[in-house]
């Protein structure tokens, strides 16, 4: 018996539609179950009341949130001047490491040592050593400010990572592009600047976005050497109110910034994957 082709759909299409509907329902049901379980079961745990009081205290949150936002401007400030410096230094290091002429051999060694050292040491150690160490040499104020040297520590560490990403980007450009550009009579420098780098940079934008997100969080490490940014401010409130809610507040502020950024980075990454295919 021929199956009637309802709404102009083929048998296969109808089957697939049914399958889609089914998996959608299953996904919805399981999500609801999990959320219900969390909402109902977690408050039933014996420690919930205590946890709620010390981590999710509304009045503490209301009292501290504006000040936390204030402190977050310090993070934003440090981020704002560090990020461009990282991009520039990272690129220079990447170029130094890829320097071909033998005269630039020392530069290459330096670039390699730089990335090895700063990728090998935990950021917090670099922040400590540079943030306290260099000012300890006896620099006059304001040149011994922890803002300057702490930021430098971030810049050095992150440049090392960013440089490696740039290098990967440079390597990802097909060698024929170099040949093609050279054959037109361009100099090595022009080839790098006009042909290789623009493509390399574009190829690594998603990865570098992830570095920016990581940097945004690591700015908080400067709190260890003095600057009162959001993490430290939350810590002060924690001690003052004997309550962890300010940390939750700080986490919320971080998420407000990083979630959209992360989604955007993922979107860029996915788009690039599609383009490659």
């Amino acid at each position: 018996m021929p199956i009637p082709e309802a709404a102009g759909m083929t048998r296969r299409e109808r089957y697939e539609q049914k399958q889609r509907l089914k998996s959608l329902l299953i996904a919805a049901a399981s999500t609801v179950c999990v959320i219900m379980a969390l909402v109902i079961l977690v408050p039933m745990t014996p420690g919930w009341e205590k946890v709620q009081k010390s981590f999710f205290d509304g009045t503490v949150l209301a009292k501290t949130f504006p000040k936390l936002l204030d402190a977050f401007t310090v993070n934003v400030m440090i981020f704002t001047w560090s990020a461009p410096a990282i991009a520039i230094l990272g690129l220079l290091i990447a170029l130094a490491r890829d320097a071909k002429s033998p005269a630039l051999f020392p530069l290459r060694i330096f670039g390699a040592a730089f990335t090895d050292v700063f990728r090998g040491v935990p950021v917090i150690l670099t922040v400590y050593l540079i943030g306290f160490g260099i000012p300890g040499l006896g620099l006059p104020r304001p040149w011994n400010s922890p803002f300057i040297w702490g930021s430098l520590a971030l810049v050095l560490t992150y440049s090392a990572y960013v440089a490696e990403i740039f290098r990967a980007g440079i390597d990802s450009v097909h060698p024929s592009q170099r040949s093609a550009a050279l054959s037109l009579g361009l100099s090595e420098r022009q080839v790098m600047r006009d042909v290789i780098l623009p493509q390399a940079v574009r190829n690594v934008v998603p990865s570098q976005m992830n570095m920016l997100i990581a940097l945004q969080k690591d700015v908080s490490l400067l709190s260890f050497i003095g600057p009162v940014e959001i993490f430290r401010q939350a810590g002060v409130f924690k001690s003052l109110f004997a309550n962890f809610t300010p940390y939750v507040g700080a986490a919320i502020i971080f998420l407000i910034v990083t979630i959209p950024a992360t989604r955007y980075a993922d979107y860029l990454m996915a788009r690039q994957m599609r383009e490659r295919r």
Partner: peptide, 14 residues
């Protein structure tokens, strides 16, 4: 974070 860091900051004249 702790006294030692405050000392370091005083020593560094920060």
């Amino acid at each position: 974070g702790d006294n030692a860091d405050v000392n370091a900051a005083i020593s560094a004249n920060q």
